[in-house]
Write a protein that binds this DNA or RNA. Structure first.
Length: 829
RNA sequence: GCCAAAGUGGCGGAACUGGUAGACGCGCUGGACUCAAAAUCCAGUGAGUGAAUAACUCGUGUGGGUUCGAUUCCCAUCUUUGGUACCA
């Protein structure tokens, strides 16, 4: 044996082999054993007929990329799995599913390069992802696995699109889009920077696109945020994104024109201070307002503006530019003529594309006025000279704001706003108006690997919906976009053209964006096999809402807003019974690389999940991911630290198995020492509370303390060991299953109940009371719990280290906090 | 620029509604076991003065304040991270 071992060492210097030899317990064997058993026995399959309360815990399902999962991806999944297992042990019927958001650009790009069908790539990647997730021991009900690229799934994505279309919520429109020449596709605004950074060119270009009318739901999307238990910052981000504002549209009469110029403002209270108007270069009146002398300059400016991309116009640009039209409008409040300017800082697509400028009280107007020497008039009492610095505060009051019919002077903002708005409305030159920053959602992409939009275009220009869903993707020879910028589908005549009772048609070649499939997947998990309807109504009522939704903060706005929008449409259709899909949302913080930088291939700091899994096992990885720090916090990975978790697990192992292998210890049935018993009950309480709040790091720490104490006391008490194992099971399911079986249980620990604690035993019988002099700690003494004030004072004075501070001194005050401390305030000499 | 969150040992982090700062883990130091190592176990570990396991001083980004007492509350300020970008 000795000799053999010696040879072993000489022949193999690979550290993993040495580690495995010296390993405390064989995690790879144990983990494989239990993963196989869970699968065989369907331990985690879920149904509606349980009689238990339900709990739906959902992860943001991944796009199965070719690079595989790294430790950062596993953080949220581990958290949700702990909750799933914990809730099961608390008696809930838990729905915990997983699937694949599998349409997307990378597979298509790979297809363009190599000719590999995206389906093939996707299948391979899913296999790899699923392997990793299963190796982590996640308790998903895999019988509910869904895939957005499966025709049985996207049939219903297309069905929802048709419902949107029927309700007038999907329409075609000529819109300026971000066109990427190299990719021959439209990019979402948020994709633009990313692609430019990758070296692509992106230009603005008008294109006929499908657009979803999300703005019709703006008010509800805003209002219902109040009803969900989401992180406040995410709600705030959505509110900002929706950007509701209340203002007034005001018509300005133009000198020498019969047309009026309508502007939108949220500050009608400052109308007396408007000194010029600005319209956007795309405004229909832009050229018409140019006087003969200004016409050349105006035309030049407009064509220049057209050449600029959105980014150049809104981006880093510090200097404002503009041109005077030569025309004047009349300020309805003062009767003064106001020059009308054109500038590209005014957005065409917001409000009316025209503004009134109040340079004294708006920083953009102020800048512009200074640049072009336009007058600045103070109409809100300002703490400084508005010629020198703008004043935008609303907590002051109007000045210089009166004419024969109206005066705002001295009124607080709200009243000034109201009085002016009413006056304008009475004079029929203005109207209250609510505006949103939120724009309608451009919904079409010129790609192959997405859900085909199920619409037929007839020769006479009419549109009809596909009646036979799903409309599947045809196989194609090449994945390159067509020369016209249409998707590769435009190159497949047998798919593209058809005939029916309405005549010859051409199919829509646009496909849906990746967001589509993820907008409603949480519903399909509830009823994944249903071929007759999107979801069974009864099952929907049983499982919805999603009780806990865990995912990255990068989806705070778009995915969550789009999904909420679709959900509300489905609610209006009677498909779902709740107004909001996700009751509670939790964003896990990113895990950084060991260098404290975001993990990325280019930095070379990615920690692949499979590496750490192989080396330390699923239980250790799960625990360590959670032990790293608070779940919501951004934190760096440190591979060394995982050793501590491995040590902890081997300590747990040794509670049941003696040091040098062999069979399990016989657990003692004798009563535990009181100290330990109290410790146990405190641990149960703390771990339960912390798990509930997703404070997994402190829960783990508490279990470590308990295990340390058990070892110190040499305790092999059965109750203590069983309590520990059931507490730990949601965190480290494999080792706890194995030990649970070793100590004689025949049923899986995954079906065991979370232990209960005894409140009386949680409270200490004796406490350490702190003694302070002038707030500084000078000693401690032990006292029974709930000792009266007098007793504490008397004992505190007897503490030896206190003597020198109070002897011969005047005690000015005695402060007693029961069960905590005594503080003597002594005259300082 | 604006909005939000956060700054605690060498490191990740703990600390209930203001009440013994640094739990737990990593790392480090010393010791036991061993031919030696690994593993394991024991002890120590915020900084400083000190022979000290005596005692004291300082210490939760910085400067003030409230309080018997502040990591915790208030004001100011700096830094970091995330979001946003002329939305009138």
């Amino acid at each position: 044996m000795q000799l053999k071992l010696y040879c072993f060492f000489f022949n193999y210097t690979d550290t993993t082999l040495i580690d495995q030899y010296t390993m405390r317990y064989d995690f790879s064997k144990t983990e494989a054993k239990w993963q196989a058993r869970w699968q065989k026995e369907n331990t985690f399959s879920t149904s509606e007929e349980s009689g238990k309360p339900k709990y739906y815990v959902l992860d943001m399902f991944p796009y199965p990329s070719g690079t595989g999962l790294h430790v950062g991806h596993l953080e949220g999944y581990t958290a949700s799995d702990i909750i799933a297992r914990y809730k099961r042990s608390c008696g809930y019927n838990v729905l915990h599913p997983m699937g694949w958001d599998a349409f997307g650009l990378p597979a298509e790009q790979f297809a363009i390069k190599t000719g590999t069908h995206p389906k093939t790539t996707t299948e391979e990647n899913i296999r790899s992802f699923k392997g990793t997730l299963q190796a982590m021991g996640f308790s998903y009900d895999w019988s509910r696995e869904i895939n957005t690229t499966d025709p049985r799934y996207f049939k219903w994505t297309q069905w929802i699109f048709l419902k949107l279309y029927e309700r007038g919520l999907a329409y075609m429109s000529e819109v300026d889009v971000n066109w990427c020449e190299e990719l021959k596709t439209v990019l979402a605004n948020e994709e633009v920077d990313e692609k430019i950074a990758d070296g692509y060119t992106v230009v603005r270009r008008p294109l006929r696109q499908w657009v979803l009318k999300i703005t019709a739901y703006a008010d509800r999307l805003l209002a219902d945020l109040d009803d969900v238990d989401w992180p406040e910052n995410v709600k705030q981000m959505q509110r900002n994104w929706i950007g509701r504002s209340e203002g007034v549209e005001i018509d300005f009469e133009l000198r020498c024109h019969d047309k009026k110029l309508r502007v939108y403002t949220t500050r009608p209270d400052t109308l007396f201070g408007a000194t010029y108007l600005v319209i956007s270069p795309e405004h229909p009146l832009a050229e018409k307002l140019a006087t003969a002398g200004q016409l050349v300059a105006v035309k030049n400016y407009i064509s220049q503006a057209r050449l600029k991309t959105e980014l150049e116009r809104t981006g880093l640009q510090k200097e404002k530019s503009g041109v005077f039209t030569g025309s004047y409008a009349i300020n309805p409040a003062t009767g003064e003529p106001l020059p009308v300017w054109i500038s590209d800082f005014v957005l065409t697509s917001y409000g009316t594309g025209a503004i009134m400028s109040v340079p004294a009280h708006d920083s953009r107007d102020w800048e512009f006025a200074r640049q072009y020497h336009l007058p600045i008039i103070e109409v809100v009492k300002s703490p400084h000279d508005v010629q020198e610095k703008v004043f935008e505060g609303k907590d002051s009051f109007p000045v210089n704001s009166s004419n024969d019919e109206i005066s705002l002077n001295g009124l607080p903002f709200n009243e000034a706003f109201e009085r002016m708005a009413t006056w304008l409305e009475t004079k029929k030159v203005g109207q209250r108006k609510v505006n949103y920053k939120l724009r309608d959602w451009i919904f079409s992409r010129q790609r192959y690997w997405g859900e085909p939009i199920p619409i037929k275009h007839y020769l006479d220009g009419t549109l009809r919906t596909e009646t036979d869903l799903p409309l599947s993707l045809p196989d194609v020879e090449a994945y390159h976009p067509s020369a016209t910028g249409e998707s590769p589908l435009a190159n497949i005549p047998h798919w593209l053209y058809g005939n029916d009772e309405h005549g010859a048609f051409r199919r829509e070649t646009n496909t849906m964006p990746q967001w589509a499939g993820s907008c409603w997947y949480y519903l399909r998990f509830i009823d994944p096999e249903n071929s007759n309807q999107l979801i069974d109504a009864e099952k929907e009522r049983y499982w919805m809402n999603v009780d806990l939704y865990i995912g990255g903060a990068e989806h705070a706005v778009l995915h969550l807003l789009y999904a909420r929008f679709w959900h509300k449409v489905l609610f209006d259709l009677g498909v779902v019974s709740t107004r909001e899909p996700f009751k509670k949302l939790f964003n896990q913080g990113m895990i950084l690389g060991e260098d404290n930088e975001k993990m990325s291939k280019s930095r070379g700091n990615v920690i692949p999940a499979d590496h750490v899994l192989q080396r330390y096992g699923a239980d250790a990885v799960r625990l360590y991911e959670m032990f790293l720090g608070p779940l919501e916090q951004v934190k760096p990975w440190n591979t060394n630290g995982i050793e501590g978790i491995s040590r902890f697990l081997s300590k747990v192992w040794r509670l049941v198995y003696p040091e040098h292998e062999g069979s399990a210890k016989r657990l003692s049935l004798d009563a535990m020492p009181e100290e330990l018993l109290r410790r146990m009950h405190k641990t149960i309480k703390k771990v339960g509370e912390d798990t509930e709040l997703l404070k997994f790091n402190t829960a783990i720490s508490e279990m470590m303390v308990f295990v340390n104490e058990l070892h110190k006391a040499g305790c092999t008490n059965r109750t203590a060991v069983e309590a520990l194992l059931t507490l730990l099971a949601p965190y480290a399911p494999h080792i706890t299953e194995e030990l649970w079986e070793s100590i004689g249980h025949t049923e899986s620990i995954s079906l065991a109940s979370f232990p209960a604690f005894d409140q009386k035993l949680v409270e200490e019988s004796e406490l350490t009371i702190a003694v302070q002099i002038n707030g500084k700690l000078r000693g401690t003494f032990p006292a029974p719990t709930k000792s009266p004030k007098e007793f504490l004072l008397q004992e505190a004075k007897r503490v030896e280290s206190i003597g020198k501070f109070i002897e011969g001194q005047t005690i000015l005050r005695e402060i007693v906090v029961l069960d905590k401390l005594v503080n003597f305030v002594v005259k300082q000499g």
